[in-house]
Design a protein around this nucleic acid. Structure first.
Lengths: 107, 107
DNA sequence: ACAATCCATAACCATTTGGTTATTGTTTTG
DNA sequence: CAAAACAATAACCAAATGGTTATGGATTGT
């Protein structure tokens, strides 16, 4: 279970990988081809990044003919969120956010 | 500003570094000596890890005679939290937690 | 059938990373 | 003052990382 968290942290340590994950959360499912155009590195590089993200369960893939569609799996961020809760002690910021939210909900 | 976030992500990608940061948040200020006993690697290794954490602003240090005391600076986790907010879309889980917290605060 | 497209894998390379031992500069202690 | 303790730095090393080009296997289009 701790190894899972480690995979998530390591996977997101690389900016290209974060960019790919961001793109997938923003735009939804994408083919490797589309991601390659976006990422600014070669197609094999993208494939390798996707493999790392897959190991961390941050993305899933679906084969459709000759193309592979990848999509983000944001639930897999849970270990990172939990870690922040345990050791970050971010109550302060969380309260700020709540306050802000409540104001927006009940102006 | 984006470089700052990158430093935080990279700094926390290593399990030893996370362990050191965790130890500092749990136990408060510690000398390099104490951290070395805890971390299970050599003193120079710990010093190097602390340098990386320092670059990410995750720790601060204070010299006192021949020893250096380090302490965690959890505010520096903000870029990671913000990133999770933007791309992780973890509102659901966060609300659950907040609800829970508010109940405990006001029973 | 053949050519082109899509993606994964292989093979390779330079750089970074995480660790080590050795050394050095300060402080503290005997 | 001499010796020991603390922490940073230097020098070094093996392994991991992030990238590349080349190749191959499957699918699609002409």
């Amino acid at each position: 279970m701790q190894a899972v968290a480690n995979n998530v942290f390591r996977a997101l340590a690389d900016p290209t990988r974060r960019a790919i994950f961001e793109e997938l959360t923003r735009q939804g499912e994408q083919t490797v081809h589309a991601l390659t155009r976006y990422a600014g590195v070669s197609q094999p590089a993208v494939s390798k990044h996707l493999t790392v993200l897959k190991r961390a369960k941050l993305v899933r893939h679906r084969r459709d003919g000759r193309e592979t569609h990848y999509r983000a799996q944001p639930d897999a961020l849970a270990p990172m969120v939990n870690w922040l809760d345990l050791y970050g002690a971010f109550w302060r910021e969380r309260f700020d956010r709540l306050e802000n939210l409540l104001q927006r909900m009940d102006p």
